[in-house]
Design a protein around this nucleic acid. Sequence first.
DNA 1: GACAGACCTGTAATCGATTACAAGAATATT
DNA 2: AATATTCTTGTAATCGATTACAGGTCTGTC
Lengths: 342, 342
Amino acid sequence: MKKPVTIQDVARAAGVSTATVSRALSSPDGVAEPKRRAVEAALVRTGYQINHAARNLRRQRTGVVVALVPKISNPFFSRILDGIDGVLRSEGMTLTVAETRPGGASAPTRGGEVNAAPLIAAFNNKSRADGVILLDGGLDWPSGGGDVPAAVYACEWRRGSSVPMVRAENARGAAKAVDHLWDIGHRRIGFVGDSRNVLIEERRRGVEIALARRGGRLDPKDLYQGDFSLDSGARAGARWLQSTDRPTAIVCANDEMAIGLIGAVARSGAQVPKDLSVTGFDDIDIARHVTPALTTLHQPRTALGRLAARTLVDLLAGREVDADQVLDVDLVQRDSTAPPRD
Amino acid sequence: MKKPVTIQDVARAAGVSTATVSRALSSPDGVAEPKRRAVEAALVRTGYQINHAARNLRRQRTGVVVALVPKISNPFFSRILDGIDGVLRSEGMTLTVAETRPGGASAPTRGGEVNAAPLIAAFNNKSRADGVILLDGGLDWPSGGGDVPAAVYACEWRRGSSVPMVRAENARGAAKAVDHLWDIGHRRIGFVGDSRNVLIEERRRGVEIALARRGGRLDPKDLYQGDFSLDSGARAGARWLQSTDRPTAIVCANDEMAIGLIGAVARSGAQVPKDLSVTGFDDIDIARHVTPALTTLHQPRTALGRLAARTLVDLLAGREVDADQVLDVDLVQRDSTAPPRD
DNA sequence: GACAGACCTGTAATCGATTACAAGAATATT
DNA sequence: AATATTCTTGTAATCGATTACAGGTCTGTC
């Protein structure tokens, strides 16, 4: 267990001062050729590894951005994280991810409110991360103070928060699903997603608006519980199966619920889309591979991630940023929707 | 942009020394009641937030463990991460996650070898994390030196590495799939997964062993390319559809490929399991919800994550750990397998 | 009453890299 | 040739928390 190599050791080995080593590391242009070479050689020879704690302490920043996601396993986030990562890398920063709901899929999301206090405590601290990208609208970020990292909401957000947000056209997207279903003949359209999550609220609002525009309405009977999980989708399917007075089409607030719903319905012999049309939301990778392939709303996930990261970078640089940036979503028609049977 | 509050400010506000504040924070038992109260009050009053950089520098450790996963979106990892997180939390440590394959799903995994150098460089450094859990066998961890964080492989690993590993019975699991298929009548069984990834190699080996035991063999014609992605599964399905001389059952090295394969096959009118039986591996959440529900091998994912985390904690504490811990996997029969048609 | 031991608290050194400042060397300008 | 300017480099202060050490109090024991 040998002592780690410090900048002092490198300086000694190279026959220069620590200041020169430091400069050779962070701004090589300010060091003359011969010494720079000497330092480079010494770095290799000694196997030097920078001590980030010391650097961060002195620099008062970490070069790290944390993405806080509700549930890592939700494949929806993956592409967004890719987008974020790409931008941060090009800025020389590092992305790490932490999950806001310990227990993951097994822990019910109690109406979007979770006790995330310990998690927030772990990251709302400049000495841990320079910035945070919040993918969980359930988190109430302590805006303000000079010693809290800069933050941006991505996808989800929190009403009334002053944190800038980057998101998709949720209401309009859901409206597109309804328009599509209405156009192919459905008149009674249900919705899965009944919790206090902003995304669900927005998407439901979109459904209501679109229906109202066509002279229809969302019957409370056709509203199914849903918390984004596969299982809640399956439960909605079970409820639909049990009743006889039921919608011919169901809009789900995300793809996983749609898949859960279709699975439950299909397993009992009913056919999607013949007996029931279903739409999802997000267009996760698997959506095109399930049977029937899912009609859903495609979000520009990578672009969304990139935009969020760029916004955060701007924020960190002290530049002005838009408080609310909204991206379009597109309907992708696949095989889970068709005209109603009768 | 006010100055952050330091321990000095708290000490002044509480009328004690910085040492006392520090002690009140990290070992409250060593501080007498009245002063402790005074410090607690001052902490609240001043809104103190610890500076981790300073603490880490002085303590020479971070309390952070990083999990390096190949692809965050792979739902297989989620439960494992849950397990890891639970153990670390109870030890007062923080888990963060970083992805080893920038570009995620879009970047092909070139035979398991990826240029992960920058990523390794970012984390093989004690000043960033105390320990690392490697979920990517493509990563070659620089074992040894006193200034590299402790590491444990989980699920995947690297042959010849001296890093301890925690994994599932991959070969035996795949053999169980073959046994099941053989028992219900299949004699020609294919395999999807042809890359240099250790998991794929092990699972394939299991298939070969099981077939050999029954007097069969894995025909090279029945070996399909596969890199864990949905798309590669779909391509395997397309290849199967094109040929007439083909297996009646296919074992896939993971669930996502199985789902991709089934999707491709189903979309062209063939039926699973009537025309083709398919098995997956992992039992990801969605496996039970797709149609047909997937017969697959269930891995004790949470347990695996917990064991990996506990092993790492032991390693950090300087305790001896087993170099190789292996957990059982169980076959879960669902609806994607059935006796062959003829 | 004296002394050992436990307990509490403060002073100051320390972790390792960065950077303000000053000074010396090299080059350009008049 | 003298002076101004630019380049390099080193010295030493600094970031903020932790902790070894020493000194002081208090309690208990013989």
